[in-house]
Design a protein around this nucleic acid. Sequence first.
DNA 1: CTGAAAGCGCTAACAT
DNA 2: ATGTTAGCGCTTTCAG
Lengths: 347, 347
Amino acid sequence: MSVTIKDVAKKANVAPSTVSRVIHNSPAISEKTKRKVRKVLKEMGYHMNENARNLVTKSTKAIGIVMKSSAKESLYNPFFPEVIRGIGDFCNKEGFSLSLTTGETEDAIFEDVVKMVQGRRVDGMIVLYSKKDDKVVPYLLKQGFPFVLIGKPSTNMTGITFIDNDNVQAATEVTEFVIGLGHQRIAFLGGSPEFEVISDRLMGFQQAVEQAGLDVPQEYIKLIPLNRIDGIKAIDDLLGLKEAPTAFLVTDLLLAVLLLGLLAERNVKVPQQVSVVCFNHSEFIEFLSTPLTTVDIHTYQLGYEAAKCVFDLIANPEMMEKNIRIPTKIIKGESHFAIEQEIKRKM
Amino acid sequence: MSVTIKDVAKKANVAPSTVSRVIHNSPAISEKTKRKVRKVLKEMGYHMNENARNLVTKSTKAIGIVMKSSAKESLYNPFFPEVIRGIGDFCNKEGFSLSLTTGETEDAIFEDVVKMVQGRRVDGMIVLYSKKDDKVVPYLLKQGFPFVLIGKPSTNMTGITFIDNDNVQAATEVTEFVIGLGHQRIAFLGGSPEFEVISDRLMGFQQAVEQAGLDVPQEYIKLIPLNRIDGIKAIDDLLGLKEAPTAFLVTDLLLAVLLLGLLAERNVKVPQQVSVVCFNHSEFIEFLSTPLTTVDIHTYQLGYEAAKCVFDLIANPEMMEKNIRIPTKIIKGESHFAIEQEIKRKM
DNA sequence: CTGAAAGCGCTAACAT
DNA sequence: ATGTTAGCGCTTTCAG
């Protein structure tokens, strides 16, 4: 059916192994034969059967991506495509291909992982978002299979290489930034604290306000599911306080968009009257009427570094685990500038 | 290293072929032996080496996804994750796995495709977004490799199974809807017409206005690159016209968001003063202060049906090509309601 | 109903 | 520098 190494060998009058060596550019082969064989290779349109090679070399040049909390959840924010772009870029550079889990439920995902690992479909794995009671990471760990985690492992686990941002630190910084603008009443609006990202950011926020000696009442902290109803309620609560916040630290673009909308409806001007700062920079914010000040978590890098790590881990499985933190950066939009000017005016 | 069919055979005192038959649940094997072998299978934690099986069966139970116009472009809209979710769901049901191209450039993507196809890594392919001068589709066609296209093939090509929406039709419908609300001055704001989606939608729009006997001046049609600067300019132009439009048909959420923002800045009320309707529904719009009226293109279905099609095509490669159109649906938000009321009031 | 044997396409000793 | 050979782990005739 399709041309094999044997066909080429026959036509070129050499042994199959010679053809194999030419393909891998072995220095043991004379330039003359190489040329000859390469010509036939091209003529016949030879292409390697990867399954055969994988079978004997026991490697696949492929890595798997575990999409826990699948597409559905990451639907609105560019995290998913962006992190895959990072992973993909690195893999492409190294000639690796990418395999995705397709399961939606925890169990289906677990099955996918087992199939990839045991079925020898991939040489390593990248796990996106790990949650507390997750079977995948322990399984990979037990199998001694090369993998890295994007996110943070459960505290009771060791031996895991993971890539993430320092969300505590990032939140501290951005909070200090807001405090530096002169704000005293800062609200924290975020998603469910069951996600480590959120609880870390909250922690960073609290550390910063404490450090600054500010008093942040409990009503200033809203941790809610990501939907319109709960969002509106939380924001209404905040705006309805007798001592309403003058600044908002928001963990999710969606909530920030909602907030901006509600503020506009109430004729509260951003940034003249309140300041809004939001996590997870994306080019989307350019299209908002009030370009937000955001924290860039460098999603692409997260993916790229993760891929690099599995790659290293595959090459050297005994490598010590490590933890790479991708720095975050405050991207100044316009949702705080005027406040700064106010401050200056006051000075 | 890891347990093979031979190990199991030895321990169970049967031939390797018997084990293979048990795994595939061949009716030729007695229940007794099946039980015995299954027990050992489980005991030893056997798992199939897919590479070995792929090698002999010449099939992979995997399909490839060609991400033309990669993640980077689909970054802001949920199309990419959503379509993959659809594909993934079907594949998962059928025990198929998913492989992604990682290339960013046209050439790199092409290389990825060749590697997948010739390397026998996948049994079929799904191509997302085809553009005019694309090498991938002709290649696949020439190879006689099973694939389906999500989008629309170049007009000069035949024999391609493709899945898409009827964008002309959808645009016609939604335009008629807007006209039905009483609008006479309708603007069309969209991305680059080099994308078939856009030009089709424009065509549908034009057909509908013509049909209704409306006059749409050239200045009402803005086809621009998707960025803030060009967007603002186009919208400013439209709003600055002496006879400014009373309704906007927008092809992209991003532009719609920008439009809403600029309208708010100018104190133009939506929907009291102007109506805005936008293509590509997503749950994101719930978070906008003015819930948009949108056209749902059913991205998930697009992916799901595409997967189903390659699956059928793999099973029966001689199958006639077909074209599946996923219907679109107008999802009424609030960005047009009041206008309807106005109309009624006038009646 | 089960076993023996050949072979999928490739690589990697081991020869020469 | 190149050829020979023996598998990788599985499926699949062909026998029995």
